[in-house]
């Protein structure tokens, strides 16, 4: 059963339009949201979190619309946005001491575990962190309150190959615990390694939203890797 449903989402900007974006996320599945830069991934994700005000469409979490239930829904959702630096001059431990107060289900044990896994030093400030470590700090906040859904905007961006592998292993572990993981990326190898489902977006429109095996069966040609398939589809959209 879907725990997140995005239906007919529409957002118009002067030079870009997100059109009729629809997909669903299920418990215990990892969904990769792939598309090139500027395809509409971040706008979609921000709309899902009510950071961007859509011009149309519906978004529901846990079977009910997001509107009017933001606080309750965000308690159960973990969100991370790439390399954005929050409060660059405050110590990580000071930021966390405030954030934890907001969550009924803050998991101190999980926080310590991920702090250790990501090799983050609590006494550092975000401005002292490299781009990759900033991503890890944002992930740390998303992973430490027992979220049932993780919505992650380019979580592997800027990570070294070892950290990338560790993070994808974390996704797999969370999936076993029944967490739905939804992450945007433009790196196809991330999808190959851990995704169960693929949502492919191009020029503001969803071109495919289905299990990875079905995606390959429907779109891949003989001998093609997932990357080759997506590149070919993208070229086709551009030439259309």
């Amino acid at each position: 059963m879907a725990i997140v449903e995005v239906s007919g989402l529409r957002k118009e900007y002067p030079s870009f339009t997100l059109r009729d974006v629809s997909f669903a996320l299920e418990r215990g599945r990892i969904t990769g949201f792939i598309g090139r830069n500027g395809a509409g991934k971040t706008t979609t994700i921000k709309s899902m979190l009510n950071l961007v005000h859509p011009d149309g469409g519906e978004i529901s979490f846990f079977g009910a619309p997001l509107a009017g239930r933001e606080g309750e829904v965000k308690q159960r959702v973990g969100y991370s946005t790439g390399t954005v630096s929050w409060y660059p001059r405050k110590k990580i431990k000071d930021i966390v001491s405030i954030v934890r107060q907001f969550y009924d289900s803050w998991d101190e044990e999980a926080y310590r575990r991920y702090l250790d896994l990501f090799d983050l030093d609590e006494s550092k400030t975000p401005r002292e962190l490299s781009a990759g470590m900033k991503v890890k700090f944002n992930l740390l906040l998303a992973l430490s309150h027992g979220a049932e859904i993780l919505i992650l905007d380019e979580p592997t961006s800027g990570l070294d190959p070892f950290s990338r592998d560790e993070l994808l292993a974390v996704f797999t572990e969370l999936k076993r615990e029944g967490v739905a993981v939804f992450f945007s990326t433009h790196v196809t190898s991330d999808l190959e390694k851990c995704a169960d489902d693929i949502v492919y977006i191009s020029h503001g429109q969803i071109r495919a939203a289905l299990p990875k095996a079905d995606f390959t069966a429907r779109y891949a040609q003989a001998g093609e890797s997932l990357e080759d398939t997506i590149l070919r589809l993208e070229r086709g959209v551009q030439n259309a």
Binding site: L49, N50, L51, E70, G71, E72, V73, K74, Q75, Y79, T81, V84, W86, Y87, V99, F102, Y103
Partner: peptide
């Protein structure tokens, strides 16, 4: 943006 992402309306 950070505040808007916290579990509050």
């Amino acid at each position: 943006e950070f505040s808007a992402l916290l579990p509050v309306a």
